[in-house]
Design a protein around this nucleic acid. Sequence first.
DNA 1: ACCCCTGTTCGGCG
DNA 2: CCGCCGAACAGGGG
Length: 264
Amino acid sequence: MPELAEVEWYRKQWNAGIGNKIVDVRMHPRNRVFRGTNMRKLQENLAGEKLRRSAARGKRMLFEFSGDNWLGLHLGMTGKIHIAVANFRPDKHDHLVLYQRERALVFTDSRQFGRVRFHYGRHQPGWWTSDVPEIISPEFDQKFVDQFLDRHRKAPIKAVVLMQNGFSGIGNWMADEILWRARIHPATRAGEMTARKREKLFRETKLVVRESLRTLGKDYSDPPRTWLIHQKWKPDGICPRHRTPLRRATIGGRTTAWCPRCQR
DNA sequence: ACCCCTGTTCGGCG
DNA sequence: CCGCCGAACAGGGG
């Protein structure tokens, strides 16, 4: 499930362990989610350290530990994190478990498209730093969107909204939601969008992100009833505006749902 | 059995 | 070299 709002919600699940020491670390060896990561170092360094704080950027998460230790998580398609009891027994897909005295912090990912990273050092890890503005920040503005669209003129707008170095944290369902609200056909080439469409795209991107964080991101409650997300996976899904049957096709490499009447 | 999948990366190709 | 596209990754669910 994880796009930026879900990521934000998952990130907060480990808040229960903030200020507490890691007493043991367990990992499934040679698992894809650890590609490129020094697992031994992760294990040796985190044991005995306290979880300090965490942050999210787009779909990425960073967990900061005492002693200059940093853990990065990406949930991929099926990743989840949660809190479990202190004597938790990891199942097949519980790839990383950080044990504290009172609880266990668990990272699970059945398809293993997610990723665990580790860094030891005084400063934030290189893989965490980024120039891409968060959508909720003032740096994500009309000018940034316009420039990004100009750089990808030939691509369908659906594909552009999925690019993480422009629309940080947007995934398939949020992209469809944004384009539906902005009344833009998902196959429109980015370079063919009028100034008015670009403005709508910018505004609705901000709105969808803000509302998703307020609902899903805060307590995993549903986004507003009138949103497309409640219809898009139904075989007989309809446009929430006027009940026109939705259309479905692969655009930008992903299954896309849109309303043929209001998105042109 | 077969097809689908809320993500990212990589190789081919124009 | 740039940028777009489809395939591959791996497992579970309909």
